[in-house]
Write a protein that binds this DNA or RNA. Sequence first.
DNA 1: CATAAAACCGCAAAATATTGCAATTAATAT
DNA 2: ATATTAATTGCAATATTTTGCGGTTTTATG
Lengths: 248, 248
Amino acid sequence: MLKEERHNVILDELRSNNSVKSMKLSEILRVSEDTIRRDLIDLEKNGQLKKVHGGAVALSYIPSFKKREVLEKQTKHVIAKKALSLIMDDQVLIIDGGTSNMQLVNILPTDKKLTVFTNSLPVASKLCEYSNIDSVLLGGSILRKGHTTIGLQSLEFLLDIHADICFLGITSVDPEFGLTEANLEETTIKKAMIQASDTVVSMVISNKLNTRQSFKVENMDKMSIMITELDPTDGRLQPYVQKGIKMM
Amino acid sequence: MLKEERHNVILDELRSNNSVKSMKLSEILRVSEDTIRRDLIDLEKNGQLKKVHGGAVALSYIPSFKKREVLEKQTKHVIAKKALSLIMDDQVLIIDGGTSNMQLVNILPTDKKLTVFTNSLPVASKLCEYSNIDSVLLGGSILRKGHTTIGLQSLEFLLDIHADICFLGITSVDPEFGLTEANLEETTIKKAMIQASDTVVSMVISNKLNTRQSFKVENMDKMSIMITELDPTDGRLQPYVQKGIKMM
DNA sequence: CATAAAACCGCAAAATATTGCAATTAATAT
DNA sequence: ATATTAATTGCAATATTTTGCGGTTTTATG
């Protein structure tokens, strides 16, 4: 049997089961597990699956979302890398929706052991690929625009949990007006996320600085750490530093 | 034998097998493997196949569990179309995970006005595209394999709601053993889904008939309507009809 | 933290590819 | 027809790829 054939079988198996074990593949295809592992490496290199300990999982289908993401991608990548340094093994995270947070999830190393609460469908989907991460999706009505859930269910649930870090997505920040959103329903859940976390981290592209939206989430000082693509000592950030916010 | 003839033979072989080995071709065509290899190079240059180590594979790869899987897809489409006829405007639906249910969502007309509760990430994602459908995602821990949520949260929530129709995904059905699943956690939530609905509809490919898995969800008679690709009067379905289940 | 499973690494054997070359065949022009 | 050119084919020597195995390290999980 040709290598290519094996690859196709593996992908089929993955399509119908979402995950496969190397051992099982090795039986089906009658080759050593080493060979299977090498196949998986090839397929992963082609972006056709995600290798995990013991086998592989299918990539998340994640829909339309990606197009928006190209915007300012490099910048977001820089920011996400800074954010990554905050994440330690065995932490409990809340990850809000938004493209910056998605970017962070995309560069998460596979070996991090984490518990993640999220209200974002794309985040949850992506996390299915990580066998070391327990993820919990906050239920509720779906906000079409952001592929996130909102509503009472999530809210109630957030009351009962506690996280080390919350990665909060936020549309606008301003030293005076605080954290603001364009959508009323989102503010409620964001408030609850902040409440439930020790540390509140936001990734903020500099063009969001000193802007405001219609609905207030919280005062600026609820944010513990702000991550931008700028140097932490940049003058533009000083008003925020004075509010007691740490910069990265 | 002319080169052209060999080329045709090679392409034929490829069409029926999806892949060929150089060695085999060399035997069939009684030329050296070198010649075959050169043939493959030519054919690849013409974009008629893809050369790989050991032989070649067809370009438009049809999944190798081959025709069967394609057939299944068509079958699912047929079934989903039957199911569609059950859905009326302004109904409240519960849509479980699984590929059959996903198929149903894929062919939903955009103008249907519905409220949908689901525990499936793909379903919820897809429904974001429908502006006439209010969708609610049941929260909870994520079952990696199915991209579905499970757990207490979803469960509690299901206690509080009521749906007209539940489209239940089920792995195995049997007149005696009832509805069974391979995973314990899933059974709980499926039970709750059944409980919360007036009508329970399952799309069942005929090869799932009279099979069983380890964990029982409910007795057979909890299912109101079973949709298969078979004619409702087919003999294989009679044991189910006798249990009081309607066929489509 | 101990233990079993899985992943990784390097190696060697086997299979397959590549290349240059010579022999053969086909094509074409004169 | 025949000479010349071009294309095809098989072969041998050499390179590359693939694969399984033993030994070691890493990972998962109780």
